[in-house]
């Protein structure tokens, strides 16, 4: 009967010595390809318009973002503007840009770009008000944020 005795063979444990290496590789991949989340949105995340003629913003530290979208509460009409972490009005844009100018070195000031991340359903009037405020303080380089699509 001993022939039928099932001898339990010990399965060799899977070698996990390289697991840290694999995970580190993943970690480095994500560290390189992603950027830090800068702001928490206090408005509904804007659905960006689609465009074909887009440019990539290269130097992130030279870009100030203005978010435009609907309020988080339902039923509140009108567009909300968010600067940094606060819901703001167009009047605050001046100080927002001036703060940004202080934070970069002197010779980079004229390379600052303002990126307007606005929802497709916002009004052109709101965007125009923002642009006028930007013109007032000579922040002329703007970028209408849009997602890139290919031409059909």
């Amino acid at each position: 009967m001993s022939k039928f005795n099932k001898k339990k063979k010990d399965m060799p444990a899977v070698n996990t010595a390289s697991l840290p290496d694999i995970v580190f590789m993943l970690l480095f991949f994500f560290m390189v390809t992603t950027t830090m989340r800068e702001t928490d949105l206090k408005i509904k995340p804007p659905v960006l318009p689609e465009a074909t003629e887009v440019k990539k913003l290269k130097q992130k530290n030279l870009v100030s973002f203005i978010y435009v979208g609907k309020s988080l509460k339902d039923g509140v009409k009108g567009d909300r503007i968010q600067l940094n972490d606060k819901i703001s009005t167009v009047k605050d844009i001046k100080n927002f840009i001036l703060d940004k100018r202080e934070s970069v070195s002197q010779n980079e000031v004229n390379r600052l770009i303002t990126s307007i991340k606005a929802d497709v359903d916002s009004e052109v009037g709101t965007i125009y008000d923002i642009k006028e405020k930007l013109r007032d303080i000579n922040a002329l380089k703007i970028n209408y944020s849009a997602t890139q699509v290919d031409r059909k």
């Binding site: 465009a51 003629e53 887009v54 440019k55 990539k56 913003l57 992130k60 870009v63 770009i113 990126s115 307007i116 642009k131 930007l134 013109r135 922040a139 002329l140 380089k141 703007i142 970028n143 209408y144 944020s145 849009a146 997602t147 890139q148």
Partner: peptide, 9 residues
């Protein structure tokens, strides 16, 4: 990544 239409006012 941030993309968009660049314009100058």
């Amino acid at each position: 990544s941030d993309t968009g239409i660049s314009r100058k006012l």
